[in-house]
Amino acid sequence: MTRIGDFDVLPLCLGGNVFGYTADRDASFAVLDAFHGGGGTFVDTADSYSAWAPGNSGGESETIIGQWLASRRPENAIVATKVSQHPDFPGLSAANVRAAAEASLGRLGVDRIDLYYAHFDDPETPLAETVQAFGDLVSDGLVRAVGVSNYSADRIREWMRLSREQGVAEPVAIQPHYNLVHRADVEEHIAPVAAEFALAVVPYFSLAKGFLTGKYRSADAAGQASPRAAAAVSYATPKGLALIDAMTQIADAHGTSVAAIALAWLRIQPTVAAPIASASRVDQVVGLLDGARVDLAGDEIAALSELSAGGVGSA
């Protein structure tokens, strides 16, 4: 288990971005059941998921998760959600943060959000106002803990300073884009500030939009049906494919999936608490859960780190 704020979770977070998008209600329930049945407790979503999909308006993922929570009443479930990108609740003004949180609580069917992230920085709203708004949600019992997503190191430090000045709850988690093929920003800038303030890093795009599952091994994969295929195959450079080959050998040695190896490498990086990975189908869940439990050997870790150093391409 790993610790984020005052709760313990398996060191893997199930991404809810696919619920109501590439996974309908029944498929989402099956994935959630398999994840929880395999020991998973931590689920990540956002109020904006999946407003981009035809026919959706935002909140679909939260609604499905809320229905699952009501149906299954799972023990120890921890749900994180985010604010700033829902079409009806854009930005991080105090009024918007409060209104969006109340809407998320309704969709999730809970009395308190376990972990509430500022999804993206809002340059139009004074940071002091946003910090106070999140602090008030904690004080009022609507939110258990606060996190920041897609914030620069400087802005995270400023948030910490303001929260201490205002005497409100400080963030406990950072959610950045981080994986084996996208390392530089987190390792150079975010990890140091996370270490400075003892913040848990909860990376998204842990599998590089599917590339680190080993599924996309040539540019020809761009024609596949997956919404992320075109982005994933931009990593299919000679260096990227050499990395996948090495991961495949390591996965075979451990009797697990390439995705599990990507997650196992990520979870042991400094300040990382629980990588986020999503699944649209039940058969994908076991490989993800393995990523929370597979222990890589020192030479395997070193080989993957060396092969991915400097990046392999960019999606």
Rank of each mutant, 00 (worst) to 15 (best):
G141L: 11
F134C: 00
D111K: 13
G109Y: 01
L137C: 08
A100E: 02
A118W: 01
L127P: 06
F134K: 03
T130I: 07
Q132R: 14
Q166M: 04
D121I: 11
A128I: 09
I156P: 00
D136I: 06
Y117A: 04
A128N: 11
F120Y: 13
G106V: 12
E170K: 09
D154T: 13
A173T: 09
I174R: 04
A128R: 09
E165K: 09
R107L: 08
R157I: 08
E102C: 09
P171M: 02
G109V: 06
E165W: 01
S104L: 07
V143H: 00
G167K: 15
S139V: 11
S139N: 14
N150I: 04
A145I: 05
F120N: 12
F134M: 06
Q132E: 15
G167Q: 15
S149L: 01
L162T: 08
E124C: 12
E170Q: 13
Y116I: 02
L108N: 05
D111N: 13
V172R: 00
S152Q: 09
L108Q: 02
A128D: 12
P123R: 14
E102I: 14
G147H: 06
R157E: 12
A118L: 00
V143E: 04
R107Q: 00
L137D: 08
G109D: 01
G167E: 14
Y116P: 00
R155G: 14
A153K: 03
S152W: 07
G141V: 15
T130H: 03
S152E: 10
V131T: 10
Y151P: 08
V131H: 06
R144K: 14
Y151F: 15
T125N: 12
D111E: 15
D140E: 15
V138D: 05
G106F: 11
P126M: 10
Q175E: 05
L115P: 04
A169R: 12
F134Q: 02
R155K: 15
E158Q: 15
V143Q: 03
T130P: 05
H119I: 02
A173S: 14
Q175R: 07
L162A: 07
S149C: 02
D114V: 06
V131I: 10
L162I: 13
V148W: 00
L108W: 03
Q175S: 05
I174H: 05
L127M: 15
L127E: 12
D140K: 11
